[in-house]
Design a protein around this nucleic acid. Sequence first.
DNA 1: ACACGTCGGGACGCAACCGTACCGTCGTTG
DNA 2: CAACGACGGTACGGTTGCGTCCCGACGTGT
Lengths: 212, 212
Amino acid sequence: MTSEKRRTPAGAAVLRGDITRAIRRALMQELAAVGYGRLSIEAVARRAGVSKTAIYRRWSSKLDLVLETVVAAAGSKLPALDTGTLRGDLALLFQVVAHALSHPLASQIIPDLLAEAARNPTIDQTLQQVLRAKQQEIGGRLIARAVERGELPVGTDPDAAVDLIVGPLYWRLAIARTPLTGTYLETLVESVAAGLAAETALPRQRDASVGG
Amino acid sequence: MTSEKRRTPAGAAVLRGDITRAIRRALMQELAAVGYGRLSIEAVARRAGVSKTAIYRRWSSKLDLVLETVVAAAGSKLPALDTGTLRGDLALLFQVVAHALSHPLASQIIPDLLAEAARNPTIDQTLQQVLRAKQQEIGGRLIARAVERGELPVGTDPDAAVDLIVGPLYWRLAIARTPLTGTYLETLVESVAAGLAAETALPRQRDASVGG
DNA sequence: ACACGTCGGGACGCAACCGTACCGTCGTTG
DNA sequence: CAACGACGGTACGGTTGCGTCCCGACGTGT
């Protein structure tokens, strides 16, 4: 009904970008401060200095607000990442990841949402698409290039490789929250590179009817 | 006041162990279901089939209840763990960790509490003492034995080693929640062993006046 | 210059939870 | 057998947050 009679919104009747940004910023801070479980729209509104209505006009629910904002914040990052050697790629990747996880907000929000994803399917799906898919794609390409160069054996499992690449640094920065020491990243590059190379060392041994 | 006149509690005036156990069990389930942030005493009481008073008589607060119960549940585990070889120790450790993290309750509670620890100092301290201290001790001994046997170079950093050992498996099971495939753990043993061995390959180059 | 229509803000009803006070129940002690 | 005293459960005020409704303000298009 009322089909095409309305003219387009204009004047004061349009969302103000500065308020949208203030809400987004307040959300990230609230999320880091209290976590998704205790996140309240009222607290976000208070912190942003706006009213609840301002938020509900833009997003339909708490989940919508969080996912849309997080996706927007996480999207469009990571450079091309192709240095020509496995160790170079790893070093660059680690620097990027370490830089991202060193951000106080990110280091609190990411583990929180990942934990929440274990019990909220919608969050799980979204993070799956935004974070892990990109992660696997990057990891997969990194491995594929290394295999082409002959730095890694053919048949290297990309999934296991991603675990080996991401796991230690994530554990240290996001879980243990131990600060990086001077040569930590360089050492980690060596360890992970060696670990990746060793990955396929075991599976093939003589015959081996691969049982359970 | 009223110093020593009271006689010791007796009769019905004593905490019932079955109710205490029911509360503990309900707490773990609630914690896995909604997380620490949304945990409510009322929900725990409902799930346990007891009254709130029964909980408040035993623990002073939500935090007290959670920490005491989690510590009790996490304490006193892990066998001696000394198989005679680095790979043997790793394989055994991975099996234990994988088994623990495969428990549906544990795999939801642990990441949740670790994320909460980033913003709650009390939780942080407690987990630090209960989980990470034990972890570092075990990892440290594992490394030390391997160094003694000559399987790892002298000067291997135990902290970095723990990251390398725990990170990948934790990432896969607790964060990515990818199921283990048949030979995953065995492959991981090879990768991590190789990674550990490579850890000290880089730092020493020529002179290097060891700073920091 | 006027009319339009959405904006931001305050107020409201509803629901959930916290922590406590009170009350009847129960089993041991003397 | 009687009295004691802490137990478990219900009921209560106070607080917080959700989602909605109504209001005056505002700036562009006619």
